[in-house]
Amino acid sequence: MSALLEKERITARISSAVADVLNSAAELTGTTLNGFVVQAALEKAQKIVDREKRITISRDDAAMLLNLLDNPPQPNEAMQRGFKRFMEEKYGGRKD
C-alpha cells in the first residue's frame, strides 16, 4: 500500500539572467530546473534551521557551565523565596 504524498507548489518570477544561470547549473548537475531549485533551497533552508537551533559557546563558557552543573551554588534568599512562591502557585502549598 503506497502512502499519498501531498505536494505543494511554489512559483517565482526571476530575470532571464538568473534563469540562465539556474538552467546552466541544473544541466551541469544532471537534473531538472525544478529539481535543482528545490534541492538548493532545501539545502539552504536546512543550514539556516540547523544554525538557529544550535547554541555555540566558547570552551571557557562550556567549562563554567559544566562546573556549575557539577557544583551548583547554594540557593540564596531570593531563590528560596522564589521557589517557595512557585511551589505555592503550582501546587497550592502542598508538601507532596
Rank of each mutant, 00 (worst) to 15 (best):
T11S: 10
M79T: 10
L42I: 12
P73Q: 06
R85Y: 02
Q39Y: 03
T31E: 10
V49N: 04
G35W: 00
R85L: 04
T56S: 06
N76D: 14
A25L: 04
S15I: 02
L28Q: 14
T32L: 11
E89N: 14
N67I: 02
R85G: 07
S2G: 09
L33F: 05
P72G: 00
D50T: 06
R13P: 05
G93T: 00
Q46Y: 00
E43P: 03
V49Q: 15
R54E: 08
R85S: 08
E89R: 14
I48L: 10
S16C: 01
E88K: 08
F86H: 08
S58H: 04
K47G: 12
D70R: 11
L65R: 12
I14E: 04
A12H: 01
A26H: 01
R13E: 13
S2D: 09
L68M: 02
R85K: 15
F36L: 03
Y91W: 12
E43G: 08
R51Y: 12
M87E: 02
R9G: 00
T56Y: 01
A63Q: 15
G92W: 01
D20Y: 04
V49I: 14
T32N: 09
N23K: 12
R54V: 10
E43W: 08
E52G: 03
K44N: 15
R13L: 12
S15V: 02
I48A: 11
A12E: 04
L22V: 08
D61E: 15
L28T: 06
I10G: 02
V18K: 15
T11V: 11
Q80P: 03
T32I: 07
L66R: 15
P72R: 03
F86R: 05
M79Q: 14
L33G: 04
E8N: 04
R9P: 02
R9A: 02
A41D: 02
S15A: 06
R94L: 04
T31I: 06
E89M: 06
A78R: 15
L42P: 01
L65M: 11
I55M: 08
E27F: 03
E77I: 13
P72V: 00
A40P: 01
I10V: 08
V37M: 01
T56P: 03
N34P: 03
G82A: 14
A78F: 11
L5S: 06
S16Y: 13
K44T: 13
G30H: 10
F36N: 05
T31Q: 15
L22R: 03
E6F: 05
L66Q: 09
Q80V: 08
A63I: 13
N67T: 08
E6Q: 03
D50G: 01
S2C: 11
N23G: 12
A40R: 11
Q46F: 05
S2E: 06
M64P: 05
T29P: 00
S58C: 07
D60F: 02
P72Q: 01
E6S: 00
R54C: 12
D70Q: 07
L5I: 11
N67Q: 09
V21S: 08
L5E: 04
N67S: 11
E6C: 03
R81P: 00
P75A: 10
R59I: 05
L42S: 12
A3G: 10
L66N: 13
S2N: 05
P75H: 06
R51S: 09
R54P: 10
F83A: 01
N34S: 15
A40F: 09
N67C: 10
D70I: 03
E27S: 02
E89W: 07
T11Y: 04
P73S: 06
